[in-house]
Design a protein around this nucleic acid. Structure first.
Lengths: 199, 199
DNA sequence: TCCTTTTTATGACGCTTTGTCATTTTTTGT
DNA sequence: ACAAAAAATGACAAAGCGTCATAAAAAGGA
């Protein structure tokens, strides 16, 4: 996490740094991001960057945490809107992720963050590191039409869903498939999960 | 792909380079891998590395291709052994991936490669870039007990399976869960896919 | 066998990037 | 107004990547 100094910064400067971070980390992979570019864009001296963040990793972590909190809020809203229907919610999340801009984030950054989350198998539904315990979203899921007998079953089910939505989203981001194709694929995949594959 | 020079190398030297690649790329992420370390371990001058590979990316690609070909062979064997039962095959692949050594590869390298494959959404079942067209494994799958009406259905089904097996494997590699826990989770998840989640 | 041509080997070097640190400047508190 | 704490600054060391001019070795031909 960034230092106290960073959070004490005047609005204007902090925004400049944040914007530069979003631009640079959204361009390529995190490893490719250059601190030189960041300090140039934000118009701060190199030393200041290291006054605000321990290192590059620290700056990335800051963005990821922000992203997770915003996503969490978005999922909550979708669940409420869809009356707890988890399949509808999954599609809703897909739709909003594949919009041109996600919340305050650039789409390129969103792509990188989702990859990073996937790489570290971070589940947005209940992330112990970032979200408070009582903030789990599972309680808003309508379980009436689901074959679920325990908390454990629900857990595995969400794991599967998360993996699938992410997978398609990242494919769309990498431009291997279009937004529309991705949605159709997701619908198909959700259908399989619903009905089961076994005769 | 590596240069002709690399493949013309004498057995001994080529092996030394390969081993060094496997060690270094198995340690951290690909970006973190250091060519300096590689040439030191392989006891070749720095310039030679660039005589064999265009750049770092090129060396990685070489390893990934080798890995995919070996994995492909392994999946084929598993499918034959399990008489085309795709669920049993999935578990078999999980088991062999979570062994201490995977084929000739270090487990650390396998972890990185699987992540890289996932990042690029490369499906080992039918990879157009590396495998020949007729080498698709789907024809060995026993479809009798599956609710599958078209090639398309099968495609989506395999996407889901691939995603899930990878996901668990990577979690085991990152030591968040044990081999045994991972296997139980995979079994549970496969069960959900089989039966479906909808009441 | 000797000479020419092609292939391979070699490591110093240029360039870029990261993170550090000693010093200066600004802010805060009394 | 002064001292102490906090923040800003940029030069610099260290490390890494890929290049390139040159040397060595191997292959081919007469």
């Amino acid at each position: 996490m960034p230092t106290k100094t960073f959070f004490n910064l005047k609005e204007d400067k902090r925004k400049r740094v944040e914007t530069a971070l979003i631009h640079e980390f959204g361009k390529g992979s995190f490893e490719q991001a250059s601190i030189t570019n960041i300090v140039n864009e934000a118009k701060i001296p190199r030393g200041s960057f290291y006054q605000y963040f321990v290192d590059k990793e620290d700056a990335v972590t800051y963005l990821i945490h922000k992203f997770i909190l915003l996503e969490h809020q978005k999922i909550y809203e979708a669940l409420i809107e869809k009356n707890g229907d988890i399949f509808e919610t999954a599609l809703r999340i897909y739709d909003y992720r594949t919009k041109d801009t996600i919340l305050n984030f650039d789409i390129g950054l969103a792509r990188n963050i989702l990859e990073e989350l996937r790489r570290n198998n971070i589940n947005i539904f209940e992330n112990k590191d970032i979200l408070k315990k009582e903030e789990s979203l599972t309680k808003y899921i309508n379980k009436d039409s689901l074959k679920i007998n325990s908390e454990e079953d629900l857990y595995y089910f969400i794991r599967i869903l998360t993996a699938i939505v992410r997978s398609v989203t990242v494919e769309v981001f990498s431009e291997r498939i279009s937004k529309e194709e991705g949605r159709k694929m997701l619908e198909k995949e959700l259908e399989i999960i619903k009905k089961g594959i076994e005769k």
